[in-house]
């Protein structure tokens, strides 16, 4: 164990993991929706740091750009538009919480346990040996070109679907209302 602590990368990991864990807990326990979203930013930022530690620079920056730059902004808009309650005394959770906590705990035991039994104390020996963005680009357009195209199609479908869903088509009731307004 002292070996483990003598490794500086592990100190970095510990700090980052602590930040991630605490902010993740806050994401799911905070009574304020906006706080939750901001803690998610913190968790994601720390995860990006973790990716840097794992020498996955490209993914780290993609995470920062896409998630923190775009997705969270979208979330904040969503919170704003749906007028989510932000006061301190709002019931944010279902009661009782215990079954959910139990399920989540079981999930943790199972996933962590399977990792522990499968990989024991095997080490990551490649730390610091960065994957070049060039390699990612090449792989993306050669070996993974079909998934890449599929994902692009998914994005297109999401784009169209999002527009179709969110576009306000006048419902019959609304149309009647406007007609009445016109008549009035």
């Amino acid at each position: 164990m002292s070996d483990w602590f003598s490794e500086p990368a592990n100190w970095v990991f510990l700090v980052l993991a602590l930040v991630i864990a605490v902010s993740a807990v806050r994401v799911v326990t905070s009574t304020n929706v906006v706080h939750s979203a901001l803690f998610l930013v913190l968790a994601l930022g720390a995860t990006a740091g973790l990716f840097l530690l794992l020498s996955a620079e490209f993914v780290a920056w993609v995470l920062v750009l896409v998630y923190i730059g775009a997705v969270i902004v979208l979330f904040l808009f969503g919170i704003m538009i749906t007028r989510a309650p932000t006061g301190p005394n709002v019931e944010m959770d279902h009661r009782p919480r215990a079954p959910a906590a139990m399920a989540a705990f079981l999930m943790f035991i199972v996933t962590a346990g399977s990792g522990l039994t499968a990989f024991g104390d095997q080490e990551i020996t490649r730390l610091g040996d960065g994957t070049s963005t060039e390699l990612i680009g090449e792989q993306l357009l050669q070996r993974f070109v079909i998934p890449f195209e599929v994902v692009s199609f998914v994005l297109l479908a999401a784009l169209i679907g999002g527009i179709t869903l969110a576009r306000r088509d006048a419902s019959p009731a609304e149309e009647e209302a406007t007609e009445e307004e016109v008549q009035a």
Partner: peptide, 14 residues
């Protein structure tokens, strides 16, 4: 990075 375990990441992920 010889002493960085895989499992620490997996547990964090879990």
């Amino acid at each position: 990075g010889e002493l960085v375990l895989l499992n620490q990441f997996l547990i964090l992920g879990a």
